[in-house]
Write a protein that binds this DNA or RNA. Structure first.
Lengths: 147, 147
DNA sequence: TTATGTGCAAAGAGTTTGCCAGCTA
DNA sequence: TAGCTGGCAAACTCTTTGCACATAA
């Protein structure tokens, strides 16, 4: 059966190969924000012959076709997620690298407004919050916080 | 005479060498957000024997001492600016790479609030607006826009 | 059939590091 | 002088690319 992303590829008229189908599958199944190496690790469980160069090429192809969004969370490698119509920003849990998506309408409006006030038209933007989980404070001494 | 950043180094008790003094000078004089190579180019006009490895090491030292802030504007290399107490965000003119600093109190409050609502304490954040200059629309044809 | 895609290894860009001479405190 | 620092080149990480072979349409 066609994966969600493979369907989008068909609609966009991309030539489909076994490798692209595999990578589309992996991406469709990924609920996180994997980097290229992680995609590659997942892909070779489905097709051990796939090469990391192909993952790089495919991920770029998909990004240029607006199927994927590329992110950079400051760790020196690109992360990918399926492009969606509903824009969102990211909060990165710096304790474990987990990425939480959020959307705030007021912030979105502010971004456009600020650019306009500076004499610019907003083309793209990036808001990332780096944060630690709030520890639950116990009224008496030890708050049970792990580490 | 001591450059502004060299003074901060002294206050922090960093061992000062000619190379570090030169780089501190270059940084103190830089009003933009230079990358390592640009700092290196500026440094070798003051001391032709300085090596780029030293620039990398010094910039990291200064960053760890909270003398510099490191940024990543998505072009694959780190950019630096003197750390300041007044936080600001950046708008990047994608036509020419120019970086404009701005501060918006409401946005700052929103960042903290959003993190809190998700159950996190904000540690750091990054907001970048990528934008093009608003072209002045002339009612009749040519609007005089350059390029 | 023919333009395109893939695998492999080499090349690139940015950054870090091992080693030893040189300098700071 | 004792230990930190700098220069140089090699190494590292992530990513791209040239080439010959394979494949989708």
């Amino acid at each position: 059966m066609q994966s969600r992303i493979e369907q989008i590829c068909s609609e966009k008229g991309l030539r489909m190969t076994d490798q692209r189908r595999t990578i589309a599958q992996v991406l469709s199944d990924s609920m996180d924000h994997p980097d290229v190496d992680l995609l590659y690790q997942r892909a070779i469980t489905l097709d051990p012959n796939i090469s990391i160069a192909t993952v790089y090429r495919t991920v770029r192809l998909f990004e240029e076709a607006n199927i994927l969004e590329k992110h950079d969370f400051g760790d020196g490698r690109a992360r990918y997620e399926e492009a969606s119509n509903n824009h969102h920003d990211h909060l990165i849990n710096i304790k474990n690298g987990e990425v939480i998506e959020f959307y705030n309408d007021e912030i979105e409006r502010m971004k456009i407004k600020i650019a306009k006030e500076l004499g610019y038209d907003l083309v793209d933007h990036r808001l990332e919050l780096y944060a630690t989980p709030t520890s639950v404070k116990e009224p008496s001494g030890d708050d049970g916080e792990i580490q």
